[in-house]
């Protein structure tokens, strides 16, 4: 199939960018979206032009690196699918495709489609862990955890931190990401001792990073390649309320 691409090109965070139009010809419907971009880049390199910069790593839908708005939808038109797992059979011959980077103040553009997602790392550093004294490896199943809780914790822990929730949110809010990271530990016994400070610190770090606020439109849930539910945002809202009223400082 032959496609017309409108790709955001921007040299760095300080410069301004613009959409540049490229033709992608003879694209196989079996190729992935990133492979299609690879082919376009090979053409650009052959013409001595700068290839389109985009993030990618595992190309198996589990690392959270790939990040691009495809026709205004994070990771493109298929639900529960990362851009690397999106295949060209989702498009048809003659389509025009707009490819833009995640747009958020907290995600400054590094180059073209590559954005700096360090603000997510800062949120994790503020409490997305449990502090444990190291020692011998504990026996498996030494701490009983109900299956419902284990399942729910795993649902939250599926978050790969790609940032699609922020990109798709009308307010560039990171609340689905933060809620997932707060919740997967809050649902487990190991997460209890630091539960209150965790949610307070992670929300504060999220606010300081300049993300917007959730207005319960649930675009994040629709865009999330892992299908993280907005139930976790409600859970974070409960936890923050309780922690705000019950923490010692």
């Amino acid at each position: 199939m032959n496609l017309t691409l409108h790709v955001w090109r921007q040299n760095g965070s300080k410069t301004s960018g613009k959409l540049v139009t490229y033709n992608a010809n003879n694209v196989s419907e079996d190729s992935s979206f990133l492979e299609m971009l690879d082919e376009v880049n090979e053409g650009l390199i052959a013409n001595d032009e700068e290839p389109i910069a985009f993030d990618h790593d595992c190309r198996e839908g589990i690392c959270g690196s790939c990040s691009m708005m495809i026709n205004g939808v994070a990771h493109g038109p298929e639900r529960h699918t990362t851009a690397c797992q999106l295949h060209m059979r989702s498009f048809k011959d003659g389509d025009e495709i707009y490819i833009e980077p995640w747009r958020a103040k907290a995600f400054p553009i590094i180059k073209d489609l590559v954005v700096d997602r360090n603000s997510f790392d800062k949120v994790i550093q503020a409490g997305g862990y449990v502090s444990v004294s190291t020692g011998g490896v504990p026996d498996a199943n030494a701490i009983p955890i109900g299956k419902d809780y284990a399942d729910s914790a795993m649902d939250a822990a599926e978050c790969i931190g790609c940032g699609a929730c922020v990109a798709s949110c009308k307010n560039a809010s990171a609340m689905l990401f933060v809620a997932a990271k707060v919740s997967h530990l809050a649902l487990l016994p190991q997460g209890q001792p630091e539960r209150k400070n965790r949610v307070l610190n992670m929300v504060k770090t999220m606010d300081d990073a300049g993300f917007g606020n959730c207005t319960n439109q649930y675009e994040c849930e629709a865009a999330c390649p892992k299908g993280i539910s907005v139930e976790f945002i409600a859970k974070m809202n409960r936890d923050f309320l309780k922690a705000g009223l019950a923490s010692k400082d």
């Binding site: 409108h6 955001w8 959409l19 708005m69 026709n71 205004g72 939808v73 707009y98 833009e100 747009r103 958020a104 103040k105 907290a106 798709s168 009308k170 307010n171 560039a172 809010s173 300049g210 993300f211 917007g212 606020n213 207005t215 439109q217 649930y218 675009e219 849930e221 629709a222 865009a223």
Partner: peptide, 20 residues
């Protein structure tokens, strides 16, 4: 105000999946 400032540059081709 915080929501507007959180996205200083808007999308060239915005789209909505399920927000009413």
């Amino acid at each position: 105000r915080a929501n507007k400032s959180a996205r200083p540059v808007s999308y060239s081709k915005p789209s909505t999946v399920q927000a009413s």
